[in-house]
Amino acid sequence: MTEESAGGVAKKFLYVNRRAPYGSIYALESLEVVLIGAAFEQDVSLAFLGDGVYQLAKGQDTKGLEMKNFSPTFRALEDYDVTKLYVEKEALEARGLSPADLVVPVEVVSAERMAEIMEAQDVILSF
């Protein structure tokens, strides 16, 4: 199904993550799309805006929530050839975070640059 339907032409897919990891299911289910989508060999990027930057924060402890901590999955994305992770600079700074606080290496970009990245996409999935 995958190669045939793709017709051999990769599209630029951007997954936009806007929400904190456990307050709602959007973050987890977004990650599920990324993992499934990786099999389609498209040109994939992830963007983290607003509270979405918390998805990448180190030291997540979800025991008290009785939910699965899915942050280690972000470290596995490299194995799926998903390596373009953009984090909004303003969002990170507003929350007192720096790239050193995140579980994976990311490219920190200004909101203005983020808009340009979005402009360059074929498909944007916003969660």
């Binding site: 339907s5 017709g7 599209k11 389609f40 498909v123």
Partner: peptide, 20 residues
């Protein structure tokens, strides 16, 4: 069906419009 159908829908269409 599976999530692959969403990715394929994005690939096949001229525009994928998200309502959320």
């Amino acid at each position: 069906s599976g999530l692959g159908q969403l990715i394929e829908a994005g690939i096949q269409a001229d525009r994928l419009v998200v309502f959320g």
